[in-house]
Amino acid sequence: MAFTAFSSSTAAAEPVVRRKSRVALFLLLPGIFYLILFFVTPLISLIITSLQAPDPLIFGQFVNAFNWQNYAIVIETYGEQAVRSAGYAALATFFALLIGFPLAYFIGITLRPYPLLQSLALVLVIAPFFISFLLRTLAWKQIFSTEGPVSGILSSIGILGPGESITGTTFSVVFGLTYNFIPFMTLPIYATLVSLDLRLLEAGNDLYGSPATTFRTVTLPLSAAGVMSGTLLTFIPAAGDYINASREFLGSADTTMIGNVIETNFLVLQNFPAAAALSLLLMGFILVLVAVYVKRSGTEELL
């Protein structure tokens, strides 16, 4: 309703917002306070930690310093895992898009004449969220286990050699990431497709556009905003994910991602500066990537 207030009387609204409003500032205070306490403070603390040096007197403790070499060391030590994370996340995003777009299209457009089926299909996409993410991933581990059905079939037709397994491989980790993020890809695309005016598709058809051309020139541009939010919502968490690639779930020493490295450095090695430096690098990397992506795909859709 607030939206209509804005749009219906633009001229009248402008003077109201122009006034330096102390009330607005006052209303913003809790939000600002929250951001300072729970975002800015931890971020600064993380930056300080990432530059700490080992305490020369007490072993295992760290003192504040300007030890920027921490960054060079972690890049050198864990470069491979960082590149792998980006690669896995990109693969997972690609596959999630490949599966998520047709799914969203089916629910949003094909099922539109049948509202009941449409809601049912939506529920099916969301339903996995009712079960813990960890449990679902563990279930896949069971399905892929050596004595499980999938491995049995694959080894009987010779795809899996002796001593080889599905879990702990690139396949299983990318599979897990894709599976876990499909809803994050599907829902934003669905949200754009569900409001797509079908008359536009009819118009494309009337103008002798083949289904492929209509899709490319009408459907795709109109759903671009959804595709973009979907890919961001998938890629960003997937790049930092440490569950799927964990040895406790679908990964192994060969599939370690940067999230696992950060976890080990924080919790096991208690090398806090290294963990903090890695976290900041990951944050910076994603920020730059998203900025470039948003810039290149055009900001209008996001607005």
């Binding site: 072993f59 295992g60 020493a253 060969d254 490295v261 090695l269």
Partner: peptide
């Protein structure tokens, strides 16, 4: 000793991380 602990644990964890 704390030094040994750190050194050994780091070497052990490096194998687990494939680093």
């Amino acid at each position: 000793t704390a030094q040994e602990e750190n050194e050994y644990q780091a070497a052990f964890q490096a194998i687990l991380l494939g680093a």
